[in-house]
Amino acid sequence: MSINAIEKALWQVSMDPVQAGRLREDPESYLQEFRLDEQERALMTNWDIRAIVDRGVHPMVLMMAFAAINGPDMAASYIQKVNTPVQVAS
């Protein structure tokens, strides 16, 4: 898991509306600038919040980036996502 690269990608989004717009509109293009593997890119594209947190990504920067993408009224949705354990395929 490229935690540092993911946190960098998220931090830029959280601080820069232009980067947030890029991730919102064309995640593939934005994420290819970072050293991420295919699975990591998928997690971020799908905003698999709990799976990302479980892998050790800092939750504050994740939440701030999620808010930058989804708007300030995202709190309930974020809380639900982060508190829902990832389903393990049987």
């Binding site: 947190v53 504050m60 994740l62 939440m63 974020y78 809380i79 982060v82 508190n83």
Partner: peptide, 8 residues
């Protein structure tokens, strides 16, 4: 809990 599991 800020963005972390347990938030709320």
């Amino acid at each position: 809990w800020v963005g972390s599991v347990g938030m709320g």
